[in-house]
Simulated scan of single mutants.
Amino acid sequence: MTLDLSDKTVLVTGGTRGIGRAIVEAASAAGATVAFTYRASSDTADQLVADLGGPDRALAIQADAASADDATAAVEAVVAKWGRIDGLVVNAGITRDGLMIRMDAQAWQDVIDTNLTGAFHVAKAAYRPMMKQRAGSIVTISSVVGVMGNAGQANYAASKAGLIGFTKSLARELGGRGVRANVVAPGYIATDMTADLGDAAADGLKGQIPLGRLGEPGDIAAAVLFLLSDAAAYVTGHVLHVDGGMAM
């Protein structure tokens, strides 16, 4: 089945690299008009807009994922340009890894502010326009770490576990207005964040994964597209594990 998003306008936070970029490109290829946020590299963002067909088809928005004002401005820019927001993908996130005994309060707070509070800000901004439309799909990108925990990532695991409860709560609040909210929980994905693992560590991870490989950004994008599409019209409050079987 080919997923058709030709009638959808989608906003992806953190959309210029890794999983976020794969989601942006896949949504555009499926016919959606796509806006995405980025933090620093305007050249990369501008090139991505050009690659997606120019300003009629794509919109780049510079934003700090932890900023309430930036989140509101991003959603307002999408609605001002295209008149609606059909899909929101909350993907922006950071890591500040370290064993908890050596983790300072700032490393904890930075990750919570970006990964979890940032999700609150942008979902709150999209809440009212989606309610008025009586339609919409919110997809948050959690992690297998939010389900299983991971040594050295107490802050990251807490933020990603928090996203699950947050999204389920949105699903209960918004379901009566025709708005769905779901979670995708990736396993270990071959991105810039895993590129420095080294062969031995990568092989060790593969040994924990029944399918025997790291995931690709496109694996996550495919799951997100399903949840954004009308094919998932009766799916809400769900956590979709895309992890090769690692967390089953």
Rank of each mutant, 00 (worst) to 15 (best):
T16W: 03
R21E: 14
N150W: 09
Y38A: 00
A157W: 14
V242K: 05
A190F: 02
A151E: 14
G237S: 08
F36A: 08
Q109K: 13
T191C: 07
A231N: 08
A26T: 13
A123D: 04
D4T: 08
A22W: 11
K132R: 06
M246V: 04
A32E: 04
R57L: 04
Q109S: 13
A63S: 14
V75M: 03
D230T: 01
K132G: 14
A50S: 10
T37P: 01
T114G: 08
L170N: 07
G53H: 02
R128H: 12
R21M: 06
V111F: 14
T117V: 15
E76Y: 03
L174K: 08
V111E: 12
Y234K: 04
E216H: 14
R84P: 00
G204V: 08
Y156S: 04
V10W: 01
I189T: 08
M130S: 02
N150K: 12
A125Y: 09
G215T: 04
T114F: 13
V145Y: 13
P129F: 00
A171W: 06
A202W: 10
G165F: 01
R102I: 02
A158Y: 14
Q109T: 15
L197G: 03
D70N: 08
V10D: 00
G198I: 00
S28K: 09
Q62I: 09
S143F: 06
A35T: 03
G118K: 06
G244F: 07
A80T: 15
S28A: 15
G15C: 05
A185H: 06
A107I: 02
I101N: 13
A32G: 02
L174I: 12
K160W: 03
I19T: 06
Y156F: 12
V147L: 15
S169L: 05
H241L: 07
N150F: 06
L227Q: 02
M100S: 15
T33Y: 10
T72G: 15
A30G: 02
I19R: 04
K124S: 15
G31A: 00
Q47T: 14
I61G: 03
A66C: 03
Q47R: 15
N182C: 10
P210W: 13
N155W: 15
A29G: 12
M1I: 12
G31F: 02
I85Q: 01
T9W: 00
V139R: 00
A105Y: 11
R21I: 04
S6Y: 08
D51C: 10
M1D: 14
A26F: 12
D4N: 06
V183G: 13
Y188P: 12
I189R: 03
A92I: 05
G136K: 02
N115P: 11
A32T: 06
I164S: 07
R57H: 06
M248Q: 12
F36R: 05
Y156P: 03
A195H: 03
A65N: 09
P217G: 09
